Computed example of a mutant assay.
Amino acid sequence: MIRAIVMDDEPLALINMEKKLKEFNSIEVVRSFTTVKDLLAVGPTLDFQVAFLDIEMPGLNGLEIAQLLKEWDKNIYIVFVTAYRDYAVQAFEIHSLDYLLKPISKARLETTINRIQELLHLENKPNPIEVRNKPALTIQCFGGFVVLHNDKAVHWRTLKTKELFAFLLSNLNSHVPRDTIIEALWADTECKKARVQLHTTVSYLRTTLSTLGYSEVIQYANGCYILQLEDFQCDAHDLEHILNGKTETGKIDVERAEALVQNYQGEFMTSLDYPWITSKASFMNNKFTLLLHDLVEHYTAIDDVEKREHILLLTVEHTPYSDKIIQQLMRHYIEVDHRAGAVKVYNNFKSILMTDLGILPKLETTELFNAISVE
């Protein structure tokens, strides 16, 4: 429940504002004031989170009262209610939450109240960083391969040490045959020499990880190596956990998925020229596409067209040759009555296909474009 005070020097305007606020079950008017004297006498003892203030009042005006309230409690939200536009700039200089012009519609007031609820929810929501410490080891796989320890880049003894870690991380918690590793990392090296180099590189990697506090995380048994890591953060593994959670519960963890998408830097290990990367990259990039698809479905279900458009555009960037995605984006623009956007998307797609692949869009995509053109 939002606790509010209301102040207006005109009694009828005050009663009208109270009446409008009482139409919402989420807000409680704890006290109303018509004079600064009453506010000064009672206000400091009240527990409230937001003040609805008229601006044009005798004595102290609403702007001055807002500054006074902020001195009492800097976290109080200020909403100005006035018939004049002239004070808007001054109002927002005081960091007011909103500026409502009389007469106020219920829909406009609802927007303000919803915003207050969102801000109060964020204030009361525990900070994940405060609840648990951020893992010391963080790994970015999308857009490259960056390994940080306490926000500092990890120093690798050799380039092969880094590549071996990337390879084992891509097969985390799986027993990988020694010969499979050699074939992936030392395919052009004589077998006996390759085994020596693998043994040396494993030793370097164990030493590096040990200095970071990860001892005995690489084991060798029955001709296989296995990397077992705990207490670390990795975007690729976050992706897999999100998708696994969707499979188990039928629902996507939207907050976690949005965070992953927001930090997206590009395709899986895209900057690495490792021979073994191709198949793994294709697999992980397809998983990221699935995540984007799930987000599009979610935003469609809740009718959030703005976020849906953002994710569709990112999906097109991620998979530029997909007729299916282009059709989704075109239909989105048709739905929001932005047919020019749909036409532009089709023309760009056709140009890319012809330039890069020498082919035309599929018949269904072209028919969708023709339908728009006819209309």
Rank of each mutant, 00 (worst) to 15 (best):
A281M: 02
S279I: 12
L295S: 00
T289W: 00
H318R: 07
R331Q: 15
S322R: 01
N285A: 07
F283N: 04
D273A: 15
Y333D: 06
I326W: 02
Q328I: 01
Y346H: 03
K287M: 13
T315W: 05
H318A: 06
E317L: 12
L314W: 05
I302S: 07
S279E: 14
T315Q: 14
H310P: 00
V345H: 02
A342Y: 06
T300Y: 14
L292A: 05
H310W: 05
M330A: 02
K344P: 00
T319D: 13
R339H: 05
I352R: 11
S282L: 13
A340F: 08
T319F: 05
L357I: 03
S351T: 13
S322I: 01
L272F: 13
E306H: 10
L314P: 03
S279Q: 14
K324Y: 13
D304W: 10
V343D: 08
I334R: 09
K350M: 10
F288Y: 15
P275Q: 09
P320W: 03
H338G: 00
A342T: 09
Y346N: 04
K280Q: 14
T315L: 15
E309Q: 01
I325L: 13
V345D: 02
N347G: 00
R339P: 00
D304S: 08
T319A: 13
L291Q: 10
Q328R: 14
F288S: 04
D337C: 05
L329M: 07
M330L: 03
L290K: 11
F288P: 03
L290Y: 07
N347S: 08
E317N: 14
V345S: 07
L353E: 04
D304E: 13
H338M: 09
I302D: 08
D304F: 10
K324H: 12
H293D: 14
L291R: 07
V305W: 11
V316E: 04
K287L: 11
A342M: 09
V305G: 01
Q328F: 09
D356W: 03
D323H: 02
K324V: 12
I326G: 00
E306M: 08
V343R: 12
H298F: 15
D337F: 08
D304C: 10
D356H: 10
E306Y: 10
D294N: 00
N286G: 13
Q328Y: 09
Y299E: 04
K280A: 14
V343H: 06
D303F: 12
S279Y: 09
V296M: 06
K307N: 15
I325T: 15
W276S: 03
T300I: 05
V316N: 02
E306P: 00
V336T: 14
V336Y: 04
S282I: 02
L329R: 09
M354E: 14
S351G: 05
